[in-house]
Design a protein around this nucleic acid. Sequence first.
DNA 1: TCTTTATTGGCATCTTCTGCCAATTTTAGC
DNA 2: GCTAAAATTGGCAGAAGATGCCAATAAAGA
Lengths: 165, 165
Amino acid sequence: MPNTRLDAIDRRILAALQRDARLSNVQLAEEVNLSPSPCLRRVRQLEAEGLIRGYHAELDRGGVGLGLTVFVGVKVERHHEAEANAFREAVVALPEVISAHLVSGESDFLLQVVVADLAAYERFLTGTLLRLPGVSDIRSNFAIQSVKEHGPLPLTQPEDKGRSP
Amino acid sequence: MPNTRLDAIDRRILAALQRDARLSNVQLAEEVNLSPSPCLRRVRQLEAEGLIRGYHAELDRGGVGLGLTVFVGVKVERHHEAEANAFREAVVALPEVISAHLVSGESDFLLQVVVADLAAYERFLTGTLLRLPGVSDIRSNFAIQSVKEHGPLPLTQPEDKGRSP
DNA sequence: TCTTTATTGGCATCTTCTGCCAATTTTAGC
DNA sequence: GCTAAAATTGGCAGAAGATGCCAATAAAGA
Protein backbone atom coordinates (compact mmCIF):
# COMPACT_ATOMS: atom_id res chain seq x y z
CA MET A 1 0.00 0.00 0.00
CA PRO A 2 2.07 2.92 -1.26
CA ASN A 3 -0.31 5.49 0.08
CA THR A 4 1.11 8.52 1.78
CA ARG A 5 2.65 11.31 -0.16
CA LEU A 6 5.64 12.76 1.60
CA ASP A 7 5.53 16.18 3.12
CA ALA A 8 8.49 18.48 3.65
CA ILE A 9 9.27 17.07 7.08
CA ASP A 10 9.29 13.49 5.85
CA ARG A 11 11.68 14.45 3.12
CA ARG A 12 13.97 16.13 5.57
CA ILE A 13 13.90 13.06 7.78
CA LEU A 14 14.81 10.86 4.84
CA ALA A 15 17.58 13.19 3.77
CA ALA A 16 19.02 13.31 7.26
CA LEU A 17 18.95 9.54 7.74
CA GLN A 18 20.45 9.02 4.32
CA ARG A 19 23.34 11.20 5.40
CA ASP A 20 23.70 9.73 8.87
CA ALA A 21 21.65 6.74 9.85
CA ARG A 22 22.90 6.82 13.42
CA LEU A 23 21.50 10.17 14.35
CA SER A 24 19.71 9.86 17.65
CA ASN A 25 16.02 10.54 17.49
CA VAL A 26 16.60 13.65 19.57
CA GLN A 27 19.12 15.04 17.11
CA LEU A 28 16.96 14.11 14.18
CA ALA A 29 13.93 15.78 15.73
CA GLU A 30 15.91 18.92 16.28
CA GLU A 31 17.15 18.89 12.70
CA VAL A 32 13.64 18.69 11.29
CA ASN A 33 12.09 21.06 13.81
CA LEU A 34 9.88 18.62 15.57
CA SER A 35 9.80 17.26 19.09
CA PRO A 36 11.09 13.72 19.57
CA SER A 37 7.73 11.97 19.83
CA PRO A 38 6.22 12.83 16.46
CA CYS A 39 9.62 12.54 14.86
CA LEU A 40 10.02 8.98 15.99
CA ARG A 41 6.50 8.19 14.91
CA ARG A 42 7.23 9.45 11.42
CA VAL A 43 10.40 7.42 11.18
CA ARG A 44 8.56 4.28 12.24
CA GLN A 45 5.91 4.97 9.65
CA LEU A 46 8.45 5.51 6.89
CA GLU A 47 10.00 2.20 7.84
CA ALA A 48 6.63 0.46 7.88
CA GLU A 49 5.71 1.89 4.49
CA GLY A 50 8.93 0.49 3.10
CA LEU A 51 10.30 3.87 2.13
CA ILE A 52 13.23 3.19 4.41
CA ARG A 53 14.47 -0.21 3.37
CA GLY A 54 17.26 -0.53 5.87
CA TYR A 55 20.25 1.05 7.51
CA HIS A 56 23.75 0.08 6.50
CA ALA A 57 27.29 0.88 7.48
CA GLU A 58 29.43 1.99 4.55
CA LEU A 59 32.80 0.27 4.76
CA ASP A 60 36.14 1.13 3.24
CA ARG A 61 36.63 -1.49 0.55
CA GLY A 62 40.37 -1.34 0.52
CA GLY A 63 40.46 -1.46 4.29
CA VAL A 64 38.60 -4.75 4.41
CA GLY A 65 40.81 -6.27 1.75
CA LEU A 66 38.54 -5.77 -1.23
CA GLY A 67 40.76 -3.66 -3.41
CA LEU A 68 39.23 -4.38 -6.78
CA THR A 69 35.84 -3.35 -8.11
CA VAL A 70 34.74 -4.57 -11.52
CA PHE A 71 31.69 -3.67 -13.56
CA VAL A 72 30.77 -6.71 -15.56
CA GLY A 73 28.47 -6.73 -18.54
CA VAL A 74 26.93 -10.13 -19.16
CA LYS A 75 24.99 -11.37 -22.15
CA VAL A 76 22.81 -14.40 -21.66
CA GLU A 77 21.41 -16.59 -24.36
CA ARG A 78 17.93 -15.24 -24.73
CA HIS A 79 15.41 -17.55 -26.26
CA HIS A 80 15.58 -19.63 -23.09
CA GLU A 81 13.64 -17.59 -20.56
CA ALA A 82 14.30 -20.27 -17.99
CA GLU A 83 18.01 -19.73 -18.27
CA ALA A 84 17.72 -16.03 -17.63
CA ASN A 85 15.86 -16.81 -14.45
CA ALA A 86 18.45 -19.32 -13.39
CA PHE A 87 21.11 -16.73 -14.04
CA ARG A 88 19.31 -14.16 -11.93
CA GLU A 89 18.99 -16.49 -9.00
CA ALA A 90 22.58 -17.60 -9.23
CA VAL A 91 23.78 -14.02 -9.27
CA VAL A 92 21.81 -13.08 -6.18
CA ALA A 93 23.54 -15.85 -4.29
CA LEU A 94 27.07 -14.79 -5.20
CA PRO A 95 28.63 -12.77 -2.40
CA GLU A 96 31.13 -11.10 -4.72
CA VAL A 97 28.27 -9.53 -6.66
CA ILE A 98 27.07 -6.56 -4.67
CA SER A 99 24.66 -5.27 -7.27
CA ALA A 100 23.05 -6.59 -10.43
CA HIS A 101 20.62 -5.07 -12.88
CA LEU A 102 18.87 -6.15 -15.99
CA VAL A 103 19.70 -3.40 -18.46
CA SER A 104 19.08 -2.21 -21.95
CA GLY A 105 21.91 -1.93 -24.43
CA GLU A 106 24.96 -4.00 -25.26
CA SER A 107 24.75 -6.31 -22.29
CA ASP A 108 21.76 -7.95 -20.70
CA PHE A 109 22.97 -7.69 -17.12
CA LEU A 110 25.31 -5.30 -15.44
CA LEU A 111 27.00 -6.59 -12.31
CA GLN A 112 29.16 -4.84 -9.78
CA VAL A 113 31.71 -7.29 -8.47
CA VAL A 114 34.03 -6.77 -5.52
CA VAL A 115 37.11 -8.91 -4.95
CA ALA A 116 40.52 -8.70 -3.30
CA ASP A 117 42.69 -8.39 -6.39
CA LEU A 118 43.17 -9.40 -9.98
CA ALA A 119 44.02 -12.97 -9.06
CA ALA A 120 40.80 -13.27 -7.13
CA TYR A 121 38.88 -11.82 -10.03
CA GLU A 122 40.39 -14.31 -12.39
CA ARG A 123 39.32 -17.12 -10.08
CA PHE A 124 35.83 -15.65 -9.82
CA LEU A 125 35.53 -15.19 -13.55
CA THR A 126 36.72 -18.60 -14.68
CA GLY A 127 35.60 -20.57 -11.65
CA THR A 128 32.18 -19.05 -11.13
CA LEU A 129 30.83 -16.49 -13.53
CA LEU A 130 31.66 -18.25 -16.78
CA ARG A 131 30.03 -21.39 -15.46
CA LEU A 132 26.68 -19.80 -14.73
CA PRO A 133 23.74 -21.01 -16.80
CA GLY A 134 23.14 -19.27 -20.11
CA VAL A 135 26.11 -16.93 -20.07
CA SER A 136 27.22 -16.17 -23.59
CA ASP A 137 29.46 -13.13 -23.31
CA ILE A 138 31.24 -11.26 -20.57
CA ARG A 139 32.80 -7.82 -20.66
CA SER A 140 34.85 -6.73 -17.64
CA ASN A 141 35.39 -3.07 -16.87
CA PHE A 142 37.80 -2.48 -14.03
CA ALA A 143 37.31 0.46 -11.72
CA ILE A 144 40.53 2.43 -11.83
CA GLN A 145 39.43 5.25 -9.60
CA SER A 146 36.35 5.99 -7.57
CA VAL A 147 35.12 9.47 -8.37
CA LYS A 148 31.92 9.35 -6.36
CA GLU A 149 30.48 6.64 -4.20
CA HIS A 150 27.34 6.22 -2.16
CA GLY A 151 25.95 9.54 -3.28
CA PRO A 152 22.64 10.27 -1.58
CA LEU A 153 19.45 9.98 -3.60
CA PRO A 154 18.45 13.47 -4.68
CA LEU A 155 15.24 14.10 -2.76
CA THR A 156 13.23 16.94 -4.16
CA GLN A 157 14.12 20.07 -2.24
CA PRO A 158 13.48 19.53 1.44
CA GLU A 159 13.11 23.29 1.48
CA ASP A 160 12.45 24.97 4.80
CA LYS A 161 8.95 26.29 4.81
CA GLY A 162 9.44 29.93 5.76
CA ARG A 163 7.63 30.98 8.86
CA SER A 164 6.98 34.57 9.92
CA PRO A 165 7.27 35.56 13.59
CA MET B 1 47.40 5.20 9.34
CA PRO B 2 45.92 1.94 8.09
CA ASN B 3 47.46 -0.12 10.81
CA THR B 4 45.39 -2.71 12.57
CA ARG B 5 44.59 -6.01 10.97
CA LEU B 6 41.07 -7.09 11.72
CA ASP B 7 40.38 -9.99 14.01
CA ALA B 8 37.30 -12.21 13.88
CA ILE B 9 35.32 -10.00 16.24
CA ASP B 10 36.00 -6.87 14.23
CA ARG B 11 34.83 -8.63 11.11
CA ARG B 12 31.66 -9.72 12.82
CA ILE B 13 31.04 -6.19 14.00
CA LEU B 14 31.48 -4.88 10.48
CA ALA B 15 29.24 -7.55 9.05
CA ALA B 16 26.54 -6.82 11.59
CA LEU B 17 26.62 -3.07 11.06
CA GLN B 18 26.63 -3.53 7.33
CA ARG B 19 23.44 -5.50 7.70
CA ASP B 20 21.81 -3.20 10.25
CA ALA B 21 23.47 0.05 11.13
CA ARG B 22 20.92 0.83 13.81
CA LEU B 23 21.64 -2.11 16.05
CA SER B 24 21.98 -0.85 19.57
CA ASN B 25 25.39 -1.33 21.07
CA VAL B 26 23.90 -3.83 23.49
CA GLN B 27 22.46 -5.94 20.68
CA LEU B 28 25.66 -5.69 18.70
CA ALA B 29 27.72 -6.73 21.69
CA GLU B 30 25.52 -9.73 22.21
CA GLU B 31 25.79 -10.70 18.57
CA VAL B 32 29.58 -10.68 18.62
CA ASN B 33 29.88 -12.25 22.08
CA LEU B 34 31.33 -9.30 23.89
CA SER B 35 30.10 -7.06 26.66
CA PRO B 36 28.93 -3.59 25.64
CA SER B 37 32.00 -1.66 26.76
CA PRO B 38 34.68 -3.30 24.63
CA CYS B 39 32.21 -3.60 21.79
CA LEU B 40 31.59 0.11 21.69
CA ARG B 41 35.30 0.76 21.91
CA ARG B 42 35.93 -1.41 18.89
CA VAL B 43 33.23 0.33 16.90
CA ARG B 44 34.69 3.72 17.75
CA GLN B 45 38.10 2.52 16.71
CA LEU B 46 36.82 1.16 13.42
CA GLU B 47 35.22 4.52 12.78
CA ALA B 48 38.39 6.39 13.69
CA GLU B 49 40.49 4.18 11.43
CA GLY B 50 38.15 5.00 8.59
CA LEU B 51 37.09 1.42 8.07
CA ILE B 52 33.55 2.50 8.73
CA ARG B 53 33.00 5.45 6.46
CA GLY B 54 29.47 6.26 7.48
CA TYR B 55 25.98 4.99 8.17
CA HIS B 56 23.22 5.47 5.64
CA ALA B 57 19.54 4.77 5.33
CA GLU B 58 18.67 2.81 2.20
CA LEU B 59 15.60 4.34 0.60
CA ASP B 60 13.10 2.92 -1.83
CA ARG B 61 13.85 4.73 -5.07
CA GLY B 62 10.44 4.36 -6.52
CA GLY B 63 8.87 5.46 -3.29
CA VAL B 64 10.69 8.75 -3.29
CA GLY B 65 9.82 9.42 -6.89
CA LEU B 66 13.05 8.29 -8.50
CA GLY B 67 11.79 5.57 -10.73
CA LEU B 68 14.54 5.46 -13.31
CA THR B 69 18.12 4.31 -12.86
CA VAL B 70 20.53 4.65 -15.76
CA PHE B 71 24.09 3.42 -16.11
CA VAL B 72 25.89 5.88 -18.31
CA GLY B 73 29.19 5.24 -20.04
CA VAL B 74 31.03 8.45 -20.85
CA LYS B 75 34.04 8.97 -23.06
CA VAL B 76 36.04 12.13 -22.54
CA GLU B 77 38.50 13.62 -24.95
CA ARG B 78 41.78 12.42 -23.57
CA HIS B 79 44.80 14.38 -24.52
CA HIS B 80 43.53 17.16 -22.29
CA GLU B 81 44.20 15.96 -18.77
CA ALA B 82 42.73 19.18 -17.47
CA GLU B 83 39.40 18.40 -19.04
CA ALA B 84 39.20 15.02 -17.41
CA ASN B 85 39.69 16.69 -14.06
CA ALA B 86 37.05 19.25 -14.82
CA PHE B 87 34.71 16.45 -15.76
CA ARG B 88 35.39 14.62 -12.52
CA GLU B 89 34.66 17.64 -10.43
CA ALA B 90 31.51 18.47 -12.33
CA VAL B 91 30.22 14.95 -11.90
CA VAL B 92 30.77 14.96 -8.16
CA ALA B 93 28.58 18.02 -7.90
CA LEU B 94 25.64 16.57 -9.82
CA PRO B 95 22.97 15.26 -7.44
CA GLU B 96 21.51 12.92 -10.06
CA VAL B 97 24.83 11.06 -10.23
CA ILE B 98 24.97 8.78 -7.23
CA SER B 99 28.16 6.98 -8.22
CA ALA B 100 30.93 7.53 -10.71
CA HIS B 101 34.04 5.54 -11.52
CA LEU B 102 36.95 5.87 -13.87
CA VAL B 103 37.00 2.53 -15.65
CA SER B 104 38.91 0.53 -18.19
CA GLY B 105 37.26 -0.54 -21.41
CA GLU B 106 34.90 1.06 -23.88
CA SER B 107 34.04 4.08 -21.75
CA ASP B 108 36.25 6.23 -19.61
CA PHE B 109 33.71 6.84 -16.87
CA LEU B 110 30.77 4.86 -15.68
CA LEU B 111 28.06 6.82 -13.93
CA GLN B 112 24.99 5.68 -12.09
CA VAL B 113 22.26 8.24 -12.60
CA VAL B 114 18.94 8.39 -10.77
CA VAL B 115 16.00 10.44 -12.04
CA ALA B 116 12.22 10.46 -11.86
CA ASP B 117 11.43 9.23 -15.36
CA LEU B 118 12.45 9.25 -18.97
CA ALA B 119 11.52 12.88 -19.43
CA ALA B 120 13.72 13.86 -16.52
CA TYR B 121 16.55 11.81 -17.96
CA GLU B 122 16.23 13.51 -21.28
CA ARG B 123 16.47 16.87 -19.54
CA PHE B 124 19.47 15.72 -17.57
CA LEU B 125 21.19 14.34 -20.62
CA THR B 126 20.76 17.25 -22.96
CA GLY B 127 20.69 19.99 -20.37
CA THR B 128 23.54 18.86 -18.16
CA LEU B 129 25.58 15.83 -19.09
CA LEU B 130 26.20 16.65 -22.73
CA ARG B 131 27.35 20.09 -21.74
CA LEU B 132 30.04 18.95 -19.37
CA PRO B 133 33.62 19.73 -20.34
CA GLY B 134 35.39 17.23 -22.57
CA VAL B 135 32.51 14.82 -23.09
CA SER B 136 32.84 13.11 -26.45
CA ASP B 137 30.51 10.12 -26.30
CA ILE B 138 27.69 8.92 -24.09
CA ARG B 139 26.10 5.53 -23.89
CA SER B 140 22.98 5.14 -21.75
CA ASN B 141 21.98 1.79 -20.34
CA PHE B 142 18.61 1.81 -18.63
CA ALA B 143 17.99 -0.39 -15.64
CA ILE B 144 14.97 -2.49 -16.51
CA GLN B 145 14.95 -4.57 -13.38
CA SER B 146 16.93 -4.60 -10.17
CA VAL B 147 18.19 -8.09 -9.51
CA LYS B 148 20.34 -7.28 -6.49
CA GLU B 149 20.95 -4.02 -4.73
CA HIS B 150 23.04 -2.91 -1.82
CA GLY B 151 24.57 -6.33 -1.38
CA PRO B 152 26.90 -6.40 1.61
CA LEU B 153 30.62 -6.46 1.01
CA PRO B 154 31.78 -10.06 1.35
CA LEU B 155 33.92 -10.01 4.48
CA THR B 156 36.14 -13.01 4.79
CA GLN B 157 34.33 -15.59 6.90
CA PRO B 158 33.43 -14.15 10.27
CA GLU B 159 33.37 -17.79 11.31
CA ASP B 160 32.40 -18.60 14.85
CA LYS B 161 35.38 -19.91 16.67
CA GLY B 162 34.27 -23.31 17.93
CA ARG B 163 34.15 -23.66 21.67
CA SER B 164 34.01 -26.91 23.62
CA PRO B 165 31.82 -27.22 26.73
C1' DT C 1 -18.85 28.37 12.37
C1' DC C 2 -18.96 23.97 14.45
C1' DT C 3 -17.53 19.10 14.27
C1' DT C 4 -14.56 15.55 13.38
C1' DT C 5 -10.02 13.85 12.58
C1' DA C 6 -5.18 13.92 12.54
C1' DT C 7 -0.94 15.50 14.53
C1' DT C 8 1.82 17.38 18.04
C1' DG C 9 4.32 18.10 22.59
C1' DG C 10 5.26 16.85 27.22
C1' DC C 11 5.72 13.51 30.74
C1' DA C 12 7.16 9.16 33.15
C1' DT C 13 9.51 5.00 32.75
C1' DC C 14 12.53 1.98 30.87
C1' DT C 15 16.57 1.07 28.10
C1' DT C 16 20.86 2.30 26.32
C1' DC C 17 25.19 4.91 26.22
C1' DT C 18 29.61 5.83 27.88
C1' DG C 19 33.69 6.83 30.87
C1' DC C 20 36.41 4.70 34.49
C1' DC C 21 38.83 1.03 37.12
C1' DA C 22 40.14 -3.41 38.56
C1' DA C 23 40.67 -8.05 36.75
C1' DT C 24 41.85 -11.02 33.09
C1' DT C 25 44.01 -12.36 28.94
C1' DT C 26 47.53 -11.94 25.52
C1' DT C 27 52.11 -10.97 23.95
C1' DA C 28 57.07 -10.76 24.27
C1' DG C 29 61.36 -11.79 26.22
C1' DC C 30 64.26 -14.69 28.53
C1' DG D 1 58.14 -22.84 30.54
C1' DC D 2 57.91 -18.71 33.27
C1' DT D 3 57.83 -13.80 34.26
C1' DA D 4 56.96 -9.06 33.09
C1' DA D 5 54.72 -5.71 30.24
C1' DA D 6 50.91 -4.42 27.44
C1' DA D 7 46.44 -4.80 25.71
C1' DT D 8 41.73 -6.08 26.29
C1' DT D 9 37.78 -7.13 28.88
C1' DG D 10 33.66 -6.74 32.10
C1' DG D 11 31.07 -4.32 35.42
C1' DC D 12 29.41 -0.27 37.49
C1' DA D 13 27.21 4.41 37.83
C1' DG D 14 25.65 8.68 36.15
C1' DA D 15 23.88 10.84 31.90
C1' DA D 16 21.29 10.63 27.76
C1' DG D 17 18.01 8.65 24.71
C1' DA D 18 13.82 5.83 23.45
C1' DT D 19 9.06 5.15 23.76
C1' DG D 20 4.01 4.70 25.11
C1' DC D 21 0.27 7.56 26.71
C1' DC D 22 -2.77 11.60 27.02
C1' DA D 23 -4.32 16.16 26.75
C1' DA D 24 -3.86 20.14 23.70
C1' DT D 25 -3.40 22.05 19.24
C1' DA D 26 -3.96 22.31 14.32
C1' DA D 27 -6.15 20.88 10.06
C1' DA D 28 -10.02 19.27 7.36
C1' DG D 29 -14.82 18.81 6.35
C1' DA D 30 -19.72 19.84 6.76
